[in-house]
Simulated scan of single mutants.
Amino acid sequence: MSLRIEQVGPASSARLAAIHATGFDRPWPANEIASLLHMPASLALAAYDGDEMGGFVLVRSAVDEAEILTIAVHPDLRRSGAGRALLDAMADVLVRTGVTRVFLEVSTANTAARALYDRAGFRQIGQRHGYYADGTDALVLEKTLQGSGQDGA
């Protein structure tokens, strides 16, 4: 498998929504994703395996900080390195735009995502109790970016 990472825009929102639906109980509809992608501070990168889009990461930035709004990888590409490739590519793009810190929230129940974020250099800086609809807590994670997009902590 050879992954390719590319920036995508609102025209890809239906495909992004379909991928999001493979990983979340409450997936985001295409119109919400498109609305986010129409905002100047939002950016999505997609991972392709050949011609097939298999995952994406969506972020929103403000000045020198960014928040990962969501990341999703199709089940066929999970554990292939696609999630990590998306995070690394996003970090590289953000560094070039002056972002120095990235934040995200992840469910305490999502052990696979938590392991991915840990390996990618994110660290816990907080917790939101009962944050998700199912009552689970969210861990607030942060990563400091430097130079090449690698963790500076």
Rank of each mutant, 00 (worst) to 15 (best):
residue 8 V to L: 05
residue 10 P to H: 07
residue 18 A to L: 04
residue 19 I to P: 03
residue 28 W to Y: 08
residue 29 P to T: 12
residue 31 N to H: 14
residue 33 I to G: 05
residue 34 A to H: 01
residue 37 L to Y: 09
residue 37 L to E: 09
residue 38 H to L: 14
residue 41 A to R: 11
residue 46 A to E: 10
residue 47 A to I: 11
residue 47 A to E: 07
residue 48 Y to G: 07
residue 49 D to C: 08
residue 50 G to K: 01
residue 52 E to G: 11
residue 57 V to G: 04
residue 60 R to A: 15
residue 66 A to F: 09
residue 69 L to V: 15
residue 69 L to G: 13
residue 71 I to Q: 00
residue 72 A to G: 07
residue 76 D to R: 03
residue 77 L to N: 06
residue 83 G to R: 09
residue 83 G to M: 01
residue 85 A to P: 13
residue 86 L to E: 06
residue 86 L to P: 10
residue 87 L to T: 07
residue 87 L to E: 11
residue 93 V to Y: 09
residue 99 V to I: 03
residue 104 L to F: 13
residue 107 S to V: 08
residue 107 S to Y: 03
residue 108 T to K: 00
residue 110 N to S: 02
residue 110 N to L: 00
residue 112 A to M: 03
residue 114 R to L: 10
residue 114 R to T: 05
residue 114 R to A: 04
residue 118 D to S: 08
residue 121 G to H: 01
residue 121 G to D: 09
residue 122 F to M: 02
residue 122 F to R: 03
residue 124 Q to W: 04
residue 124 Q to V: 14
residue 126 G to P: 08
residue 130 G to F: 10
residue 131 Y to D: 11
residue 132 Y to D: 04
residue 143 K to V: 15
residue 143 K to I: 12
residue 144 T to N: 11
residue 146 Q to L: 12
residue 148 S to R: 12
residue 148 S to H: 15
residue 148 S to T: 14
